[in-house]
């Protein structure tokens, strides 16, 4: 059986908000290491990779690997019924037809349980190589969100170029062009999460669909910082770390020149 108790139930809402615009269903894999999800959007352009480590739960028990296929739209509806301060427990049997969500209010004066039907999902798993990125950019997540939103007002595709001087975001649309350069500022007085840091072994440049990048920024409430990892001619990774818990990562295939 699987049973996991999460003290910060609001975290589940944030995680679901970060994926609900991209996928409609997914297999949550329960394993002794934690709860994970890998799923692609319907166009197979982007991939979501979530890990919530077992150590991040107040109580975690998982005897064997259990794939828990869930409709994300329905899951969002159920988790919305939890208060943002509620403690959430997720429970299911080894071969579940249903998953139970138990919500306990912080003061323990209200207890609710919701049971949701599981579904069988034949999803394709991709092997994402554990690679060293040629360019890694760490920046405030709110700044990245703002930047993607501003770029999307002008064009559909953003070209991201990373050099040691900084990161240049460029786009072109019917009304004109936009360029925003973010420079690394590690020596200032900023707190760590307000800094922009760039680590590169060689300059990298590629084009990406802004519609997807904008969807990824729905994960902004999960982390004060976001990390972009790029390798020439490979998908970009956009990572939001969840403190003491794991991560939400998005991979996005680049635009290919004909």
């Amino acid at each position: 059986m699987f049973e996991a108790r999460l003290l910060q139930g609001g975290l589940l809402k944030k995680v679901l908000d970060s994926i609900k615009d991209i996928i409609t269903e997914g297999n949550f894999d329960c394993s002794p290491n934690g709860l994970s999800l890998q799923a692609m959007d319907s166009s197979h352009v982007s991939l979501i990779d979530i890990l919530l480590e077992s150590e991040g739960f107040e109580h975690y028990r998982c005897d064997r690997n259990i794939p828990m296929g869930l409709n994300i739209t329905n899951l969002v509806k159920m988790i919305k019924c939890a208060g943002s301060e509620d403690i959430v427990t997720i429970k299911c049997e080894d071969k579940p037809d249903n998953v139970t969500f138990l919500f306990e209010s912080k003061d323990n004066d209200k207890i609710s349980d919701f049971e949701m039907k599981t579904m069988t999902i034949d999803d394709e798993h991709l092997l994402v190589p554990d690679q060293t990125y040629t360019a890694v950019v760490k920046m405030p997540s709110a700044e990245f969100q703002r930047l993607c939103r501003d770029m999307a007002a002008i064009g559909d595709t953003v070209n991201i170029s990373v050099t040691k001087e900084g990161v240049r975001f460029s786009t072109t649309g019917d009304m004109g062009t936009a360029n925003i350069t973010v420079r690394p500022n590690p020596s200032g007085d900023q707190k760590e999460e307000e800094r922009t840091e760039v680590q590169i072994t060689e300059p990298v440049s590629a084009g990406f669909a802004l519609r997807y990048l904008n969807s990824f920024t729905k994960a902004t409430p999960l982390s004060p910082t976001v990390t972009l990892g790029m390798v020439p001619n490979l998908p970009i990774v956009v990572e939001y770390k969840i403190a003491d818990m794991g991560h939400v990562r998005y991979y996005l295939a680049p635009k290919i020149e004909d």
Partner: peptide, 14 residues
């Protein structure tokens, strides 16, 4: 003109 790549052309299936 650029085309949108698909993930399968970059990552292998498990």
């Amino acid at each position: 003109k650029s085309q949108q790549g698909r993930l399968e052309s970059f990552f292998g299936a498990v």
